[in-house]
Each structure stands twice: as C-alpha cells, then as structure tokens.
Design a protein around this nucleic acid. Structure first.
Lengths: 230, 230
DNA sequence: CAGTGTGAAAACTTTCACAGCA
DNA sequence: TGCTGTGAAAGTTTTCACACTG
C-alpha cells in the first residue's frame, strides 16, 4: 500500500497536496451521499457527515485537504462540493475497467450499475470460458484477445475475479498490457512488480474481522466462563 | 505506546486481549499463507511475511500480540502457529452466515468455497425472488422465513447483498433476528443501532482509491523498496 | 549465528476545541 | 449566531533497531 508521502503536484487541475489515504477512501462516500441529498443548495458538515456515517469533525478535516470552499456559518455549496470531489477523484476521466474472470463474481461486478454511475466504464471482459456471452453490455473474450490489443486497455483499472490459482497469471497479463492499478478479489497473495498498485478485497477476512470483534465485544458480567476463548 | 497493554502478558492460554484491529485483519491472511506453505515444520517471519505480502517486522509484531511461541534463531512452528491463529479468530466456531439478497452478488458469495474453508457455514439465503433455488447447498427462502425463525439464525453473521434501496430494511430484519455483525455490500450508508457492528465493502470506492493513487503517483520507484535484501 | 520479541521512534489518523468569518 | 477551517492533542499503526536466546 505504498503511497508517496508528499508527491509534488503534477495534475494541473488539482491544486491538492498530498491527501491522506484514509481521506481518499471516504471522498467517494461523500460523493454518493451528496447525490442522494440533492434537495438543497447547501449542506452543513453535520448533515453530510450524518448522511455519510462519519463524524462532522472528520468530514471537515477531510474536506479541508481539498481546499476550503465552505461558507462559515452556512455550510458547503452542494454543486461546488460535488464538482471538487469529482475532480479530485477523477470521476470525469471515465476510467476504463477490465475484468479478468467472469464467473459468478465477475458477472456480479460486470453487471453492477454503480460502475458507470461513479465514472467508470467497463471496457473488457476476459475469461477462458463464457466467451461470447454479453454481460453489462460487453462481450466476454478470451484472454489472448487482451494480450493482442494492449492499446485498447492500457490505462484501465484491472479487476481480478478468477479462482485463486489463476490470479497470478491474470496479474501478469494485466501488467503486460500496461495496466498498473489492480483490484484483486481472488483469494491469493499477489506479488506485484514495482510501480503496480494492487488492492485486495477478501470476503473471508472481512467475516473473520467481524467474527473476532463480536466475540471480543460485550463483556457481559453475568455469563459463565464457558465463552472465554477456547 | 500501549495504553491498557501494560498488563504483563500472562503465560498460559491467556485470551490475549486488545489485539489491534489492523492485526486481526491480517491474521486471516497469515492463516491462508500458512496453509499454502505447508511443506515444512517451521517457518521464519521472513518467509511467512513474504508469502503474506507484508514486512517481516509487521508480522513479528502481529504475532507477538498472540503471545510468543516462536523459537529464536529458528522460526515459528507451523502447527502451533496455525492453531493459535485459528483459536484467536475462532475458526472452529463454525459461525453461521446468512445472506440477504441473492442476486448476482449474493450468488457469488453463496457459492464461494472459501466460506467453509475459513470456518464459516452458510445457514440461510433470503430474497424476495429466487425462492426455492438452491445455491451453495442452501435453499433460498422468502424474507419472512427469516423473521419467523430467529432462533435458527441468531448469532450468525449477516451479509447484505441487496440493491441499495433495500439495504436499510435488510439491516433492520437482521437486527430483529438477533444478528449483531453485518457485512454490507450494498451501496448505501447504514445507520446501525448501538451494539451492531457493520462493515462495508464498496466496489466503487475501491476503484476510486486505485484511480486516485495512480493519478497522483509521481515518484514510483522512490520509496517502494519492499523486501529488504541486504 | 540467525531469527524472535519488543521497546522506542516515526508516521499516520482521529478527535478536540476554538479562532474567525459570513 | 452558526458553522467552517485548523492547529494541537490523543490515539493507532508501522517501522526501526537491537538485546536476547536456542
């Protein structure tokens, strides 16, 4: 998860300095919350924070990294806010998305309407099976097709939704094509080459975190000792 | 540093409290890495760290929260390690898992073999449609069925895989049944009542984080040196 | 030696609280 | 008056470096 600490700003439209990772992760949530609340012109940090499920102090701090454009005593202008967050996140880039592995999960992702809604465009579906099938408006093609047309997919974000044993090859393929940002749903630890950013989403881990926290939460005094970690 | 952790770590099978969240999130990864490397009896922090995609220092620190059972100059006993991590994560509890919403995503999760492999047991599938269909060995039932049999599902972990507009109701239903740990895949901010732990997995957010980081990556190779070679 | 276990430092996040402005 | 913007404090996580031990 290496992230440059203070990267000299390059993007012209974005005066932002280094925005903390944790903040970036929440901007997307704010953006969605804004879209759902679009009944007013301005909104206070309190209201937006409530709609986003965070504290108002955190929200203000987050927004302060994008520059200050709220109005003291009033709140944030909804339009300005949406535009600013969208610009920082690059929503208007219409980033391409390429999915390798079109099993159950790949299907679910390909058919997810939120992709387009958040400024992403499904540009490729690849699998060894299911070739020819159309999902989310895109036709499933064999893996070789990806390798054969790097120019079409370079710059996209790659999603690995293959079985674990195929994940490493999928990553190699994506990298070969020039993709350098990858989301890995496969149950496998990948070893990305330098310069390649891989994020992992792991259902089992999420469940285990929940399970652990539940067992260690709530210290009811009235229970016998049986529940203590076995 | 440690707050309440000045408790002299008592020997024995102490349940070792206050394991950092970040550590818990990684234990599951270590466990899987161990299972894949099971060709030897002992393993060094270096080797396991490499297989898990973390630094060896981090791994040692993580394991130190579980008590110390490595052998200096040698490494960790694989069996002891697996057992200890499994115990802390409660893998042997065979926690039930209930999924609300059996669309594409629900299907994918229900069919995911990693559930059982990590000690979870799919115990219920609920949807307004697809009733009667069998996925992952479990029959899809109407939502009312869940409400009607709280005793069957209390204590399970709930997974919300419904469309956004149905997510809040799904949460209410799960809570009503006595479930207090929920994983939310729906694109909706939920407002859980006190005592209910909700984690969110959001595809669009993950993609936007990747997208942002790629655009703001300016000095790629500078800081990246992962594994120390020396 | 080789490799664990761990204090202490550094880095990162969140929370607090309040100055300052519309 | 009400709410933003932000330093500073508090809390959490990661990294470092080295004493210690089989």
């Amino acid at each position: 998860m290496t992230s440059a600490a203070d990267v000299p700003v390059i993007v012209g439209a974005a005066p932002s300095r280094s925005i903390p990772d944790a903040t970036v992760a929440r901007l997307s949530i704010y953006l969605r919350a804004i879209e759902e609340l679009e009944a007013c012109d301005v909104i206070s940090s309190q209201a937006l924070a409530a709609a986003s499920g965070v504290s108002s102090a955190k929200l203000r701090k987050d927004l302060s990294y994008l520059g200050s454009f709220g109005t003291r005593g009033v709140g944030y202008d909804i339009d300005a806010l949406r535009e600013r967050i969208g610009a920082v996140l690059g929503v208007d880039d219409h980033r391409g998305v390429v999915i390798v592995g079109v099993g159950n999960l790949g299907h679910a992702i390909a058919g997810y309407s939120g992709l387009a809604a958040r400024g992403f465009q499904l540009t490729g579906l690849f699998d060894v099976d299911h070739v020819g099938e159309i999902v989310g408006g895109v036709t499933v093609r064999p893996l070789d097709e990806l390798r054969a047309h790097p120019e079409r997919y370079a710059g996209a974000i790659g999603i690995i939704a293959t079985p674990a044993h195929a994940a490493a090859d999928a990553l190699d393929l994506l990298v070969e094509v020039g993709i350098s940002a990858v989301l890995n749903f496969a149950t496998a630890v990948l070893d990305p080459p330098p310069g390649i950013d891989v994020r992992k989403v792991d259902l089992a881990s999420e469940l285990q975190i929940l399970s652990f926290r539940e067992r260690h939460r709530a210290v009811p005094a009235a229970i016998d000792g049986g529940e203590v970690i076995s």
